[in-house]
Design a binder for these strands. Sequence first.
DNA 1: TATTTAAGTGTTAAATTAACACATATTTGA
DNA 2: TCAAATATGTGTTAATTTAACACTTAAATA
Lengths: 231, 231
Amino acid sequence: MSLIRHYNSEDKVLVAVDSVIFGFDREGLKILLIKRDFEPQKGAWSLMGGFLKKNETLDQAANRVLHELTGLDSIYMEQVSSYSALGRDPVERTISVAFFALINIAQHDFKLNKAHDAQWFPLSQAPTPIFDHQQMIAEALERLKRKALTNPIGFELLPEKFTMRQLQDLYESILNEKLDKRNFINKINALEILIRLEEKDKTTSKKGAFLYKFDEEKYNQKIDEGFNFKL
Amino acid sequence: MSLIRHYNSEDKVLVAVDSVIFGFDREGLKILLIKRDFEPQKGAWSLMGGFLKKNETLDQAANRVLHELTGLDSIYMEQVSSYSALGRDPVERTISVAFFALINIAQHDFKLNKAHDAQWFPLSQAPTPIFDHQQMIAEALERLKRKALTNPIGFELLPEKFTMRQLQDLYESILNEKLDKRNFINKINALEILIRLEEKDKTTSKKGAFLYKFDEEKYNQKIDEGFNFKL
DNA sequence: TATTTAAGTGTTAAATTAACACATATTTGA
DNA sequence: TCAAATATGTGTTAATTTAACACTTAAATA
């Protein structure tokens, strides 16, 4: 007789992961939604998700699901929260763990898996998604905001070379407020994580704007240290 | 034939909740651990936990488990994170959602359920608990720190009447640093959530220290508004 | 009545944040 | 060719917030 108590009498439940996939391009911050192709709510928009398998962690599941849709690996992901309301998925009792992912749309040369009928939506123009996905998006966005104010995130969302204006646009779209150009530049420069290149980007102005890239070493240092931005 | 796709082929897993129960009394910030009474690791210290049942939410499960141990209801709890490493519970594959709870030890007149062999430990003197519970505690503490800097929390942890010194002790033990007395008082008073009573507490000084209570209305207002303390 | 102990109380310097406006380079159209 | 239009680039000052700092007071006890 073993003294090890097994958990045979306990309930097992379906566990899902759902990903709030944020992207950024010249048009601003966007999220990636997929069109649901089965009932109920067939045709409605939804976060990309999937079920946790017996032999994988939640992070692995979230990465697997993201990979299935985008083909991408090594994408920055972070757990947001778990959702467990009883009727949240009308098909069957399921709890879901939400993640957020950061992708730079223009840079990564990926094709969305056509089987999933996915589409990028500017944050403010996204349709209302199914179940409790709206709440997941809202909480993921809160997390992203805090992240942006305490750690550098541009590396995940911006192309390798970018203008100061693009960086400011990124922060403005995450924080959902206009920032003063000079104050923003002063703050960013104080971090000393940017390297100004000789090249200029001429796509948005006649004068041209200097391109910058991140100083990877100092950038990573700031990830560890953290900071406390008030923008 | 139904168009509704069921999830029959998906894996189901055991889902647990584990609670990092913080308490505060004259001796400082403490956590409540229970002695595990079955193998493996019988006799080791552990967070109080339990399994999610088919028909309850994670919050309900966490409250149920807390109630089982303490008899208390309506305790402040907040979800921290989910843990899903494959071998985290050697008995069987289980994922766990950690919560933190705030209890004011002296005020609540509760008896710990003896069946669980529970004990309060000062944060710095707690034994190393089983599995990944140490990580849960660390992350819960991080959350508590941020909470303390952005929302009032004293109501949950302090007795109804308390001295300014007790409030400062609370913050010092959560933030794990000494604070300047005058600056602390100035900051707290700026919030305008305290009411100074005529009574004094004489247990810690000959002179006696004024007792305070929270202005409940303004306190709740600050919960909604939030603030950004830098102590 | 001298000593001890924790409580109580404000001011100033330093650092951070917020507010603010004009010149420049280049293209385009008159 | 020159005027107009447009986005880029750049510093200073005021206002606010935070950090540093020391002495007096009340009461108990020796």
